[in-house]
Simulated scan of single mutants.
Amino acid sequence: MAVSATLHCLTGCAIGEVLGMVIGTALGFHDAATIALAIALAFVFGYALTMHGVMRTGLDFRAALKIALAADTVSILVMEIADNAFMLAIPGAMAAGLADARFWLSLAAALAVAFVLTVPINRWLISRGKGHAVVHAHHGH
């Protein structure tokens, strides 16, 4: 269940992270602005994916938002710290352009590292009835 929860989180984070990095890089934003945009979009897309799923079960927007906040905040936070720290640690990754393989390979590696580091966090949360355990209660899993 922890791997599934982390893959779910990675999906939202990756959409937001990639979109933020692409927009920031394409527009020539400073590293800090690019990372801030990527993090904001990762949270938006991560929460939106969870909310979409639980709203299909009949919950209203407010209830779905509460579940998404409870289920995803720690996971997204850990994932974003890990993948952005990794991107910053790779020489030239943030300065690479969109046509540069270094940009894309660094971003893919950063997301993979974030996944590996986040699985144990999600496992710990789920074992205590928190994190995605809350979502699964509403999906009927």
Rank of each mutant, 00 (worst) to 15 (best):
A70T: 10
T6D: 06
N84I: 04
G92N: 04
A2E: 11
I23P: 03
D60S: 11
D83I: 14
P91L: 09
F61Y: 14
G16D: 08
H138F: 09
G92F: 08
L37D: 02
M21W: 12
L41R: 08
F103T: 02
A71G: 09
V116A: 15
S106P: 07
L117T: 06
W104Q: 03
A114E: 03
G58F: 05
V22P: 02
A101C: 06
H136R: 12
M79W: 00
E80H: 02
A38Q: 03
E17G: 07
L88Q: 06
N122W: 01
L69W: 06
F86V: 11
V3W: 13
L88A: 14
I126R: 12
M87T: 00
D72Y: 01
V18F: 10
N84M: 00
L59D: 04
T73N: 04
C9Y: 07
A68Q: 01
A33K: 09
L107D: 03
A26W: 06
L107W: 13
I15Y: 13
I35A: 09
G28S: 11
A68P: 01
L98K: 05
D31Y: 08
V18M: 10
A5N: 09
M55L: 07
W104K: 10
W124V: 12
A36L: 15
A70P: 05
V119H: 04
I126N: 05
C9T: 14
L98C: 12
L10V: 11
M51D: 02
F43M: 07
A42L: 05
D31K: 09
A108Q: 08
G97M: 12
I81G: 00
F43N: 07
G58W: 06
V54I: 15
T11W: 05
I23L: 13
F115S: 05
F29Y: 13
R128E: 01
G58V: 07
C13S: 04
G24L: 07
A96I: 09
F115K: 10
M21N: 14
L27R: 11
I15G: 01
A99Q: 12
T118S: 14
